[in-house]
Amino acid sequence: MPADSPREVGERIATRRRARRLTQTQLAAQAHVSYATVRAVERGARCPSDDVLEALARALDVDATQLRSGYQGTERRVHAALPDLSAVIAGYEIPQGRPNRAPGELAAAVGTAVEWRLGAQYGRIAAAIPSVLADAIRYVHTAPAREHADAARLLASAARTADALAFKYGARDLSARLIDLMRWAADRSEDPLVEAVTAYVRTEIFFAARSHAVGLAALEQAVDAAPAPSSRLEAAARGALHMRAAVIAGRAEDATAADLHLDHARALAQQVGSEGTYLGTSFGPDSVRIHEVSVAVSLGPEHVDRALSVAEQWRPPDSLPAERRSGFYIELARAQDWAGLRSDAFESLKVARQTAPQHTREHPWAREVAAGLRRHYRADAESLTHFAEWIGAV
């Protein structure tokens, strides 16, 4: 896939601008660049510099990688943020003064960061999350008794968002420490739903260590400890645990357990009714369908027909978070590659890239499929070579 042309970048910027109902003059004012620059960039007459691209992305409320897919600034920003995050959590159990943000302002900042996480906008998270996490830690230590549970919930959510950077960019030790911070905050929240979310996220440790059987046992304990699904929120929390348990059971090659957990997740999704984000996790009928593909791919090539069957009948709607939609197409590409449908696999990878560029670029399975396609699939070879170079598969 060749590098984005100035025309392609300009068209993306213009499309985002129109979707936000901004004129070129308004976009220029909000981005603090000249009208002439916006006009030239949208026409494709000028390729925006990194600084201009970042300014336009901020004004359009997107990550710069969604405007220029080869943009490298996000990676630099993330890697620069990781040491800061490590320093912030080094002594999280030690009081360090009052937060810089008021509680309402902190809650809004955490909520915005969660939206960025669901949209796979990692560059924006990296710019904000160290200071947000530091304030969340300070708030837990200084909150009055009546606010202590809310402060702990905010900290758990901020730590989860920070972990999205650490885990996806390969900082496994930092990820494990952030999950420990989540568990510390969950204990202080005295909220079983926060504990359920923490158990969901903690599964990353078992995936990374390939300790799938132990991870499955941990998730099943979390399901048993979760509140009965008497409300929509409780049903979503339990359903998310079952979805995750189904995938890790697949990795453990336990098809019976995987199908059982999928059945439970499907029933709870019906109880919840509509797809939504509950406690920072997407859950509902659409998420369960995506996990049907995940489970089939986790179980291995002999289950490829299950994944392809889902994709023949259904595709994720645009209303789902970008990271989840991108994950669907990455896993579908793996199934299509196994089935010898290499042209389809490449198309799925391209959709994943268009949906969430950085999520796709950091996903090991996307890199693995791209490398395999480059070795064995000769059609559209130049485009595939460019894609493989972009994703780091060469």
Results as ranks from 00 to 15, higher is better:
Ala388Arg: 09
Arg20Ala: 07
Arg188Phe: 11
Met243Leu: 11
Leu106Ser: 09
Ala213Val: 08
Tyr92Trp: 13
Ala322His: 15
Tyr71Gln: 07
Gln354Ala: 10
Thr37Ser: 08
Gly123Cys: 14
Ala218Gly: 10
Glu220Cys: 00
Ala14Arg: 14
Ser69Thr: 11
Gln96Val: 00
Trp365Gln: 02
Thr198Ile: 11
Ala127Lys: 06
Asp173Ala: 00
Ser34Ala: 07
Thr385Val: 15
Glu8Cys: 00
Arg244Asn: 01
Arg17Trp: 02
Glu11Val: 15
Leu85Met: 14
Glu253Asn: 09
Ser211Lys: 06
Leu154Gly: 15
Phe346Ala: 04
His242Val: 03
Ile179Arg: 10
Ile330His: 06
Glu220Leu: 06
Leu53Phe: 02
Val310Thr: 00
Glu382Arg: 12
Gln96Leu: 02
Ala196Val: 04
Pro227Lys: 10
Asp61Ser: 05
Thr161Asp: 14
Leu260Asp: 09
Gly372His: 12
Gly73His: 02
Arg153Cys: 03
Phe167Ala: 09
Ile94Phe: 05
Ala143Tyr: 14
Gly372Lys: 14
Pro285Ser: 13
Ser230Thr: 11
Arg210Gln: 07
Asp50Gln: 14
Asn100Ser: 14
Asp337Trp: 14
Ile137Thr: 07
Pro144Gln: 03
Leu219Ile: 03
Leu118Asn: 06
Leu308Phe: 06
Thr74Lys: 04
Ser309Arg: 11
Val88Thr: 15
Pro285Gln: 11
Ser5Val: 06
Val351Lys: 13
Ala64Leu: 09
Leu341Gly: 03
Arg238Trp: 07
Val197Met: 12
Pro321His: 11
Gly300Arg: 12
Val114Ser: 08
Val304Ala: 15
Ile129Gly: 04
Tyr329Thr: 06
Arg251Phe: 12
Asp187Leu: 11
